[in-house]
Structure formats: structure tokens, C-alpha cells
């Protein structure tokens, strides 16, 4: 078994018309044993900028700590809000520094840019950035999520439609993955506000 599957996770980010959605499952396991059903893997960085960290839980937490530290330092040094692409390259660099002893985590960034354009970016565990016009997925349910998202995503969805498409993609994907699930959290980011939905999911 791969170490990235030790704790279980599923994260999806999707773009819409002037909005983005990022969501995750809530399970924390130790292989087949479920330890926590309230373990969120998507973190708020700024008002319109979120980062999802699927992978080994200890690295998810260490990386989140380090991202928070670096973003706070950026705030103090640059005196301006960090933009999604800046954050993506910052995290990518942090990961590539550990090229030969990586963190087992494949971060996903979702947010709105200065001009309120949707931005999503994914990367592998050593920081190779990969962008997509539609969606980025990660975690143990990523194969399932690819399938769901390819079917459900369509261009220019509004926040409500996008929320439903992303939520259904996530919920249905984790239902076919033993390592993730136990409910989900979805953040819908629009220029005015971010809505956070805690979803009902299967408890098995």
C-alpha cells in the first residue's frame, strides 16, 4: 500500500462563472480503522483563497502550519494580499526543496484572483504544477473523482449549479472509495462571500 493512502482523503476543486468551489471529505483513518469523522483537509488561506491538502495526515498538518507561516511572512514583508498564483508557486517551491525526501501530499489551490477570475491549480508531491480549465482532484478517491468530474463539469456554471455538481461528484466518488468519506465540506467562493456547506454523507 502506498503511504499516501494511509489516512484516506478526497479533494476536488472546480471552476465556474466568476466562482470556484473546493471541497473535501472528512475522514481520518489509520488504514482500515476510522479514527476521526471530522477531519477537514481544505484550509482557508485568505478570504478568496483556499488550499486543499490530500495525503498523509501528518504531512497535511505540517504543511498547513508551514503554509500559514509563509503566508503570514508574505503579508508582513510585501504588505499586500497574496494572490492564488503566488501561493501556488510558494507551495510548489516548498515541495521541490524536499525533492529527495518529499512530503506525501499533493496540494490543490482554489481561489479568485485580483480581478475575481476563478483560479485552480494542482501539483504532485514534489511540486510539479498542473493547471486545468475545468477541475483538479486529489486523494485516494482521485480516480473516482476524475470520472465523476469529467461527466458533471460543464463550462460557466453559476455558484449554485457548481456547488451541486462539485458536491455530487465528491459524494459519489467517496462512496466508491473505502478510504475516504464520512461526510464532506464544500466551500463556494464568489466575489462577495464564501459559503461553506457541511454535507450529509454515508457513514460506512
Amino acid at each position: 500500500m502506498s503511504i499516501t493512502q494511509y489516512n484516506g482523503s478526497a479533494i476536488v476543486a472546480m471552476t465556474g462563472k466568476n466562482c470556484v468551489v473546493i471541497g473535501c471529505d472528512k475522514r481520518l483513518g489509520q488504514q482500515a480503522l476510522t479514527v476521526d469523522m471530522n477531519f477537514e483537509k481544505v484550509f482557508r488561506v485568505k478570504d478568496k483563497l483556499y488550499v486543499g491538502l490530500p495525503g498523509l495526515a501528518t504531512d497535511v498538518q505540517t504543511l498547513h502550519d508551514r503554509i500559514r507561516y509563509r503566508v503570514n511572512m508574505y503579508d508582513l514583508e510585501e504588505e499586500r494580499a497574496i494572490q492564488p498564483d503566488n501561493l501556488a508557486h510558494m507551495i510548489s517551491n516548498m515541495l521541490y526543496q524536499k525533492r529527495f525526501g518529499p512530503y506525501f501530499c499533493e496540494p490543490i489551490i482554489a481561489g479568485l484572483t485580483e480581478k475575481d477570475e476563478p483560479y485552480i491549480m494542482g501539483m504532485d508531491l514534489i511540486g510539479c504544477l498542473s493547471s486545468a480549465p475545468d477541475f483538479i482532484v486529489g486523494g485516494t478517491a482521485s480516480d473516482n473523482l476524475y470520472g465523476m468530474c469529467e461527466a458533471l463539469w460543464e463550462p460557466d456554471l453559476g455558484p449554485d449549479d457548481l456547488f451541486r455538481s462539485a458536491s455530487q461528484a465528491l459524494l459519489n466518488a467517496v462512496d466508491r472509495d473505502a478510504m475516504s468519506g464520512w461526510g464532506a465540506v464544500v466551500h463556494v467562493i464568489t466575489p462577495e462571500k464564501t459559503e461553506t456547506y457541511h454535507l450529509q454523507g454515508r457513514q460506512d
Binding site: 494511509y6 489516512n7 481520518l28 489509520q30 480503522l33 476510522t34 479514527v35 476521526d36 471530522n38 477531519f39 498523509l56 495526515a57 501528518t58 497535511v60 498538518q61 505540517t62
Partner: peptide, 25 residues
């Protein structure tokens, strides 16, 4: 709080470690 040897932390209503967990959970 429950912390395992890989230093994953989680705040939980109840917890157990090791073989015990299979019986107690």
C-alpha cells in the same frame, strides 16, 4: 486530543490506540 506515532493530531470525543482500538471503538 489523539496523536499517533506519525504525529497526526485530531481533536475527538473518544479515542483509543493500538489493538485496544479494535475492541473499544
Amino acid at each position: 486530543y489523539r496523536i499517533d506515532y506519525l504525529s497526526s493530531i485530531c481533536e475527538v470525543p473518544f479515542a483509543a490506540h493500538g489493538y485496544t482500538s479494535y475492541f473499544a471503538y
